[in-house]
Design a protein around this nucleic acid. Structure first.
Lengths: 249, 249
DNA sequence: ATAATTGTTGCAGTTTAATGCGGTTTATTA
DNA sequence: TAATAAACCGCATTAAACTGCAACAATTAT
């Protein structure tokens, strides 16, 4: 096998799988590991891939972030937010949870929509204040430093005093069997209170979270009325959720 | 598994769930906790996530972007804020009102000061979340679009439940004879409740406001314990206030 | 045709990077 | 303030990377 040919094969392999081990390449191409190493070194010098300890990764994989967007998977979250907006009726009373997906919803709410909107999230509240026709009510409480939402007993108490038409919530983890779970007990307590304060609960979650779980449980999936993901409603990943009688958007 | 691959997975996990524990990562990726710790340290150095005790949080989650807007007379307000800070004792419970001067106070609070801090103002709350040793409690309520603070009956009710050591308040107008006045009735109501919730009340005001008045009265000057302006304490403009037995800073 | 030259490859020995482990220090929580 | 968990540090182990060298193939010059 020609050297050129072999190097071409290496680049192909890297582009295909994003990452590759030198040992695998050596075996596959039936040359010594040193040869592969030399090849990869050359290809790295030509900027066709990035050599790393033990293997090589594709350029896209390595160039993690020259200028990545602020929010992870923002495009997907935008899709979710737009779908969720179709549930909104004029003059209804809703609650918007924290998290980047819910924040995206708040951001995309049209200027002319008339709503009464509760929230526990500082960033969401900021966003809502920019909408002239939305009355915003902040649920007070002890603020969590990293999630920037109200938590604790006073938030839970405040939530016990209200009943909104729809609440839009996010979750850390969601699984057909284990339901909605979180990494933090306080957040679970707060989310429970949110769900109790809602006639209908809408879960916003990107599909990557489906099938993940953590230690503290917020609720079973059957208390969720509607689930919104970025997937098409007929996607097979959603089949299990449909069986639970959850409305999928 | 390649190191790069693993780090990629870590960033992904963090972005997806906003916060992760090192122990969970170690288990999931099947490496020792030290390796995960080293990875997270590197990724933190590359600004791909933020390392915290016990885990990591995503950038979007942790970044309280303290946007510095152009504030009128900011230098004077900074002087006021710095003076006001001399009143703060460790571990005390305070309340910070809305307004740009109070916001400046929140901004200038040192990273190491330990406080429990109530506020009704969204921008102040945002700022306080950036201070690691301050417990921030937000007083919920209907948010005012232009002042970005909680108002209305629920805010007033929440205030009636607390008693802080010091409250730092601003005012629209202040005059020796007419006391503190505002152009908005709701704000007056809220400020009254703030003053009632405080053992001691500190008024922060730039000297330009001295001798001005408006239609709704918050309180007389005698309920103010301390007044902070950018002027030197012996400035003659303050003489009238000294006669009212107000402590001048 | 054959020797000389050049380039490629594999191997052995050495160097460096990555990882896990134990002990210590530091931070957090009750 | 004590108990606990996490972070840190240094070290040992292992795997990978590098270096020099010899073998061999391909190319070129004589």
């Amino acid at each position: 096998m020609l050297k050129e040919e072999r190097q071409h094969a290496i680049v192909n392999e890297v582009e295909l799988h994003n990452r590759v081990l030198l040992t695998d390449l050596a075996e596959k191409l039936d040359v010594s590991i040193d040869t592969v190493r030399r090849d990869v070194k050359e290809l790295d010098a030509e900027n066709l891939l990035v050599k790393v300890h033990g293997g090589a990764v594709s350029l896209g994989f390595a160039n993690h972030s020259p200028q990545r967007s602020n929010v992870y998977a923002q495009d997907k979250k935008m899709v979710i937010a737009k779908k969720a907006m179709t549930l909104l009726k004029m003059n209804s009373v809703i609650l918007i949870d924290g998290g980047t997906t819910c924040l995206e919803l708040a951001r995309l709410l049209p200027q002319n929509i008339k709503l009464t909107c509760f929230t526990l999230s500082l960033p969401v509240a900021m966003e809502l204040l920019g909408k002239p026709n939305i009355e915003t009510i902040f649920i007070g409480g002890t603020l969590s430093r990293d999630s920037q939402i109200s938590m604790g007993s006073s938030a839970i108490h405040a939530l016990s005093q209200i009943k909104v038409d729809y609440s839009f919530i996010g979750t850390g983890y969601v699984d057909v069997e284990f339901g909605l779970t979180e990494f933090d007990w306080d957040i679970v307590q707060t989310k429970k209170a949110v769900i109790n304060a809602s006639k209908k609960t809408v879960l916003l979650s990107i599909s990557e979270k489906l099938g993940s779980q953590h230690r503290f449980k917020t609720c079973d999936l059957n208390v969720i009325n509607t689930m919104v993901t970025e997937l098409e409603p007929w996607d097979e990943k959603l089949d299990a959720f449909k069986k639970l009688n959850i409305h999928i958007l």
